[in-house]
């Protein structure tokens, strides 16, 4: 894993008086899907929020392409080409689908070619283009949140919970969209609870526990070792 696109070195993050991250070290390699795994409450979401700058690291460094972004303001990080899909999807419910997409294109008008690709991946967005995003179903909202990061070229995609609470049919739509992104050379850091999805999409994996990364390696290695999974995440793959 030489020359990673993103590198975290000993990152500590506090939320109020709680020490959530306690020295996170991880690399996100270029052009691959890196999974961030672990049980609930071990700091996966906080890690992503610290990268985008919603929380500030108390200690440690965050490097994007070698550039230190630890104290860079969130909007500037975004404009460096980091696309972020938060856990709650961050859809603007009062705005239409179209308006959500217009906002997602920070640097100018929407690119029609990209829009075609979005519609191809997520046909419902075309159907409800002028509807208020708040009236979409849960799955359609998640489509919109992924579509928003697809609205522009990004160096790095941070996606928190791609498939949480979604029906199987929609999960496969999401997985297909992500595979498509990856095929175009995207670098993705993905938090995922659904191990089957993680296995299907991930190239690399980091497993967190108690605010630290406790295991890093190839996703295939983790997927093939039930004992290791049991030890790291306290779960055995659903039969």
């Amino acid at each position: 894993m030489s020359d990673p696109i993103l590198k975290l070195e000993g990152v500590f993050t506090d939320i109020a008086q709680y020490h959530i991250l306690q020295g996170v070290d991880l690399d996100v390699p270029r052009g691959a899907v890196t999974m961030l795994l672990g049980r609930n409450g071990v700091g996966k979401t906080t890690t992503l929020r610290t990268i985008i700058g919603h929380w500030r690291a108390r200690k440690g460094r965050i490097l994007l392409d070698g550039e230190d972004i630890t104290t860079t303001p969130t909007p500037a990080i975004a404009r460096l080409g980091v696309g972020f899909v938060p856990e709650d999807m961050g859809i603007f419910a009062d705005l239409t689908v179209e308006e959500n997409m217009i906002l997602a294109a920070v640097s100018g008008p929407l690119d029609p070619n990209r829009l075609e690709r979005v519609f191809a991946a997520f046909p419902p967005l075309k159907t409800f283009w002028r509807a208020e995003a708040g009236n979409l179903s849960g799955g359609q909202k998640q489509m919109l949140s992924i579509a928003r990061v697809m609205a522009e070229e990004r160096r790095l995609y941070l996606i928190d919970e791609l498939t949480k609470g979604l029906a199987p049919a929609i999960i496969s739509t999401m997985a297909r969209a992500l595979r498509d992104l990856k095929a175009r050379g995207a670098s993705i850091l993905l938090v995922e609870q659904n191990f089957a999805v993680a296995k299907a999409l991930g190239d690399h994996a980091h497993v967190m526990d108690d605010g630290r990364v406790i295991w890093s390696g190839a996703m295939a290695e983790l997927a093939g070792d039930a004992d290791l999974q049991e030890r790291l995440m306290g779960l055995s793959v659903e039969a």
Binding site: H54, R79, P86, D94, I102, V106, R148
Partner: peptide, 24 residues
């Protein structure tokens, strides 16, 4: 207008507006 969209989106979820790259 785009600035209006940013304002409306910001009223709803300022954090996300910043994560998209706008200086709220």
């Amino acid at each position: 207008t785009k600035i209006g969209l940013i304002v409306r989106a910001g009223v709803e979820n300022g954090e996300m507006v910043q994560a998209l790259g706008y200086r709220l």
